[in-house]
Every structure is written in C-alpha cells, then in structure tokens.
Computed example of a mutant assay.
Amino acid sequence: MKEKKGFSLNGYLAILILLFLQPFSIWLLANHTGTPFLELALVVLVAICWGGFFMIQPNQAKVMTFFGSYVGTAKENGLRWTIPFFFRKNISLRIRNFESGQLKVNDNHGNPIEIAAVVVWAVNDTAEAMFEVDDYESYVSIQSEAALRNMATTYPYDLHEGDKVALRSHPKEVSESLKQEIQQRLEKAGVNVLEARISHLAYAPEIASAMLQRQQASAIIAARSKIVEGAVGMVETALAKLSEHEIVELDEERKAAMVSNLLVVLCGDHSTQPVINAGSLY
C-alpha cells in the first residue's frame, strides 16, 4: 500500500464557511421555508462538520481512514478540515535516532566481538509505516539489530592477509554496507535510512587480552621491519661515501665489522656505549 494525498481543506476557510452555514440553516429551520426534515438535517450536518477540524504540526502527518479503508494522508501544516467521519491518526515524519545495544557476534574469522550501531531514520511513506507492519518503531529496532548481526559476520575485525575490508580499518565502507543492509529490510515499512554507523567495536572480554598481545606483536614486527630497512640504507650510504671520498679503505672483514656495529647502533632498543680505539686501525 502506497501513500496518497488525503482530502483536507484550509481550516480557516472552513471556519468561515461553517460560520455562514450555521446561522443560515437555523434561519431556514425557524422560518419553515422548506421541508422541515431537510432543514433539520442541514442543521445537524453543519453541527457535525465542526468535528472535522484538526491540527498538523511541522514534520507530522495525519493518516486518515474511513471504516477501515485508507483514504489518504494529510501533510499540510496548520489548521485543517476534513470529513468528520474520517478517523485520523498522527504519525511523525521527523528524523529519529536508534542506538542498538552491544551485540556479541562472531566476525568473519570466527572471533567473538562486541558491536553496536547508531541508525538515523525517518518515515517517508506513511501508508506503509502504518499498515504494512504492526509497529514500525519496533520493526526498525529489531531489523536494525538483525542487519548489524548479519553485517558483522561478513567482515573480519582486523585487516589480515587476504582481506580487503575490515570493521576497524574501513569505517566508511562498513557504514555504507550497514546502511544498505538496513535499508533493504526497512523498505517495506516506509522508512528511509539516512545514516548508519558503528558506535562501539571491541573484542569480546574472553579474547581481548590475547588479541591485544597479537596487535602489539604485529606493530612491533612492522616497526622493526621499517627500522631495519632504514638502517640498511644508512649503512649502504655510509660505505658508499667512505669509498667515494677515499677517506679510508676497508677490506671485506673490516666492512663486515663496520656493518655489524652500525646495525647494532641503529637497530638497538637502548643507546650504545662508544668505545675509543687508541691503537692502530688494524
């Protein structure tokens, strides 16, 4: 069921019309200018019409039904008037937030993680929101958490060899994937998802310590690799400069000793203690 525009008039115009019809109908009844039954019916009808007024606040709508049939939605702000027999139910079109609880799921590698998300949404089809689902607000919360669970199982927590996208390293890609997943589930409820992003992400407590050690080890290895790469380049430059400027000539054994000493100095965790050679070079 799709939304359609419901019948409604400007409320102030309707007041002017009823203010004219009410004394006119009473005058007709008092002067017996016509059939008494029709005159009385006109007076009663005008009195009933006063019950057709309603107010619409900004970013709200009135879904109208007539004996169980959907007749349309009124979205014009201010005082409005419609047929008094229409049942009118208010529905908000304002932007709303939903924050899920912390869910415990397994990522793509089977590691238990804790994850939560914030979903920004708004109703864009009042007929679907009102009639296609029993409670669209509850539907949003349940389906958002289901989509979050499903999305979390398709990505790893951290980026490893062979992975292209991870929950922690690619927040934009993950947020877009989560938004699309939720939107597909909420389409039938007349809800438009404006934004979806992860608000909490962590390893489950039972493996958090082990994973922290793993991350630290990976960071140390990466740092050591960078240090060694830089140290080798510096040693290569030092040997080339010594040879180019003919400062000293070193045989292969002395070159090996110099390389060893430079690597120890450059790659060591602590500062080295210099040793002064008071004798000859050899």
Rank of each mutant, 00 (worst) to 15 (best):
F85N: 02
Q180N: 14
L201D: 02
A147I: 08
Q216D: 09
H245I: 10
R94Y: 04
G110E: 08
T153H: 08
I198Q: 11
A238P: 00
T73V: 15
Q180V: 10
S199M: 10
V118K: 09
G268W: 01
N124G: 01
D163P: 03
S218R: 15
L93S: 11
H270F: 11
F7M: 09
R185M: 05
K5M: 13
Q22T: 09
L45K: 04
Q213E: 14
V63K: 07
S199L: 05
I48M: 11
E137V: 02
S271A: 11
A61G: 01
V123A: 06
K5Q: 12
I220N: 12
S243C: 00
L93G: 06
V235I: 14
H245L: 13
V193Y: 05
H170I: 11
P36I: 05
L212E: 15
T33W: 07
L9I: 05
L239A: 12
A210N: 09
N10C: 09
L79I: 07
I247N: 02
E3T: 14
N111L: 07
E99D: 13
A208K: 09
S243Q: 11
G230N: 14
V105I: 13
L16D: 08
V133Q: 08
E252G: 04
Q22F: 12
Y282S: 12
P171G: 09
K89W: 07
C267R: 07
A152K: 01
L29H: 10
A222D: 10
E128M: 15
H170Q: 09
F24P: 00
Q213H: 04
R168W: 15
H200V: 07
L103I: 14
L262S: 08
Q22P: 00
G233A: 13
F24C: 04
L38N: 01
T153W: 00
I221S: 03
F24I: 01
A210F: 13
Y70C: 08
D107Q: 12
E206H: 07
